[in-house]
Amino acid sequence: MSDILLQVDGLEAGYDDVQVLWGISLKVERGAMTTLLGANGAGKTTTLRGVIGSLRPRAGRVMFAGEDVTQLSAHAKAARGLVLVPEGRQLFSDMTVEENLEMGAYSPRARQHFKSQLEKVFSLFPRLEERRRQKAGTFSGGEQQMLAIARGLMSVPEILIIDELSLGLAPVVVQQLVETLKALKAAGVTILLVEQNLHLALALCDYAYVIAEGRPFLEGPCREVAAKPEIRQAYLGL
């Protein structure tokens, strides 16, 4: 009895005349942590951009909470709780921490929960509360990643999609973010994670999809996937 929150069928997408994705399919169960793995350039970010709508899919279908949302714009999806924390954080660097969080809660649905969500976010990341009036652009890498996740949480996600959680961060900071993810999962937030650090991802997740060169490569429960030798192949691009 699984409850599928997000389902992607045969997604094809690309940039100008370069097609990058050739039929990616995946399912994300409600309340679970799913991960999308693959070598550099495999098409993970492109998949997420296609799902979220910042890139228009050429073919395929995105179902969210039982509804076809393929053609919706990214802001409409965010308003429904399909929230992406993008690669490279993409903060509003000229704006303060507080303003970044306020923008996270821009949609009418998120606005209703602004106060309670802000409290939650500040209890997860007390550092952000201390620095609420600081400009996001002046933050360290770890602080920026915290803020990016916090901004995503302010959108009151049904599903939180995170592209590259640990990239460029010190191990202590990564450990802290991992704890945060565990806490979110325990609180019932559905998570789709793209992560460079294979061991970290496979230790955290319930189910994994591996893609290679824009095509599905293998999938399975994380414990099984971790034991498969082919996974190295997907990563080394052999």
Binding site: S93, M103, Y106
Partner: peptide
């Protein structure tokens, strides 16, 4: 709120779209 959204779009349009702002 709307003015801050203008600044957010000026700052990073793609991110603004991701936070639910109809850019």
């Amino acid at each position: 709120r709307i003015g801050k959204a203008v600044r957010a779009v000026a700052n990073n349009r793609e991110a603004a779209e991701l936070t639910g702002i109809p850019t």
